[in-house]
Design a protein around this nucleic acid. Structure first.
Length: 399
DNA sequence: CGAGATTCATGTGAAGTATACCTTTAGGCTTAA
DNA sequence: AAGCCTAAAGGTATACTTCACATGAATCTCGTA
């Protein structure tokens, strides 16, 4: 038997998981604990769909990992089950945050059309043409109602404008056979302030707030899921408590807690440890954070990478705070070295703002009086990750 | 000494430009009756 | 004559640039105590 065979054979025996997918974030369990009230609310708002009536638009707030998406999916799935024979209902889910997929008005519509079975080119069409196409497809479809779930809608509105929401709700008046129900999901509780009166009136006819889970609730969730996901005696109570504590610190993010547990399991499995131990949780915490950031950095376009790289280098030199101007000068040198066209300072300023939004840096505008006004930039990621990130950028930029 | 004017370096908004891509249209070519 | 292909024309979204004005506290100015 070859070495590889041994490795392959041992995988099955050694595995700590029974059903790993239960811990994955897109898994939707039968029971959603501690969200009964919210689920009931969602359901009661959407229930008239079963009769083919257009219901109120729905607006859902809550921080990440508070079960918003899950609850909505749960309710819509049940609705679909009920409505199945009559084909009156259709549900489309779209995450507005996905870069390059759904972060502009045009792309959101294009993505919706694609999901409904049509196709639109990536560019070139006027936006109102795309609207028309969307209308057309809606009119052709058999279903009387379309429930449009727009996740992270605050991101979209921040980038586009609240016109978009208004347009969406206005579509209904131009439709004869079909009606749209918009379900907006927002992580930002201040989202309402951003949309104007007109959009507000038409969009948030109903609102539901999802509170964060507390540590006890998180524990219960983790316990339920881990029972199904892991084999017996892999996870101890202490481990679950620790996961919950970690996640509770992050404003009760259940998704985070589940990821933590899953990754910890993978780590333990990899070192052939039959139990998950405390250290695995710590390692998993690092790994998740690291992977998330590295993934962002890796997929960012070259110019963004260059800007980030110069921030890294300036930070490691550490001569007090670093400011937009410093970054831009350093960036220009880098451009020369790599032989890439330089962007203007205006644009680089915007790029820095985008990194701020992504949470990789903290940039706040300060005024140094006579010495002008600028952004003070600080890295928002731990030193260990910066080193890895620099490594990746070194490779990607081919110094 | 202190109120108000000045100043700096960039923030920020709006408008313009380049690029890549789309549809429409007209002309040229092929094909088949 | 009908059908098909191709290229040009006219149009758009997006990423970026250019232009112009806004900011806000350290610093300067100058009148006053």
């Amino acid at each position: 038997m070859s070495k590889l065979d041994k490795i392959f054979d041992s995988v099955g025996k050694r595995s700590l998981f029974k059903e790993k997918k239960i811990l994955q974030s897109n898994y939707s369990p039968e029971d959603i604990p501690h969200r009964d009230k919210q689920i009931e609310q969602v359901a009661s708002v959407l229930a008239p769909c079963l009769l083919g009536e257009k219901t109120s638009n729905l607006f859902i707030y809550g921080k990440t990992g508070t079960g918003k998406t899950l609850s909505v999916q749960h309710v819509t799935n049940e609705l679909l089950k009920r409505a199945n024979e009559e084909k009156i209902l259709r549900v489309e889910y779209l995450n507005c945050k996905l870069k390059k997929v759904a972060d502009t008005e045009y792309r959101i519509l294009a993505e919706l059309i694609k999901k409904m079975g049509g196709s639109v080119p990536a560019t070139g069409l006027p936006t109102d043409q795309v609207y028309l196409k969307f209308l057309e497809i809606l009119e052709k479809s058999d279903e009387k109602l379309l429930i449009l779930v727009l996740d992270e809608i605050d991101q979209a509105v921040k980038k586009i404008s609240d016109e978009f929401l208004y347009n969406l709700t206005r579509i209904n008046s131009e439709l004869n056979n079909t009606q749209i129900i918009v379900v907006g999901i927002s992580n930002d509780l201040r989202f309402l302030d951003m949309i104007d009166q007109r959009g507000r009136r038409s969009l948030s006819e109903e609102e539901i707030v999802f509170p964060p889970y507390n540590a006890l609730q998180l524990q219960e969730i983790l316990r339920m899921r881990s029972d199904g996901a892991f084999k017996d005696k892999v996870v101890s109570d202490g481990v679950i408590a620790k996961c919950a504590a970690f996640a509770a610190r992050e404003h009760g993010d259940a998704r985070r807690a589940l990821d933590l547990l899953r990754v910890a399991g993978e780590l333990a499995e990899r070192e052939a440890n039959p139990k998950i131990e405390m250290k695995h949780i710590d390692n998993a915490n690092d790994k998740i954070e690291r992977d998330k950031i590295l993934d962002i950095i890796e997929t960012e376009p070259k110019q963004f990478q260059l800007v980030l790289y110069s921030i890294f280098e300036l930070t490691s030199k550490d001569d007090g705070g670093i400011y937009t101007g410093d970054v831009y000068m350093h960036y220009q040198e880098l451009c020369k070295r790599v032989n890439i066209d330089c962007l203007t300072q205006r644009r680089v300023g915007d790029i820095i703002a985008e990194f701020d939004m992504l949470g990789i840096i903290n940039a706040r505008v300060i005024s140094k009086g006579r010495h002008g006004r600028m952004r003070e930039i600080k890295l928002a990621i731990p030193e260990s990750i910066v080193e890895r990130a620099k490594g990746i950028l070194d490779g990607a930029l081919e110094f």
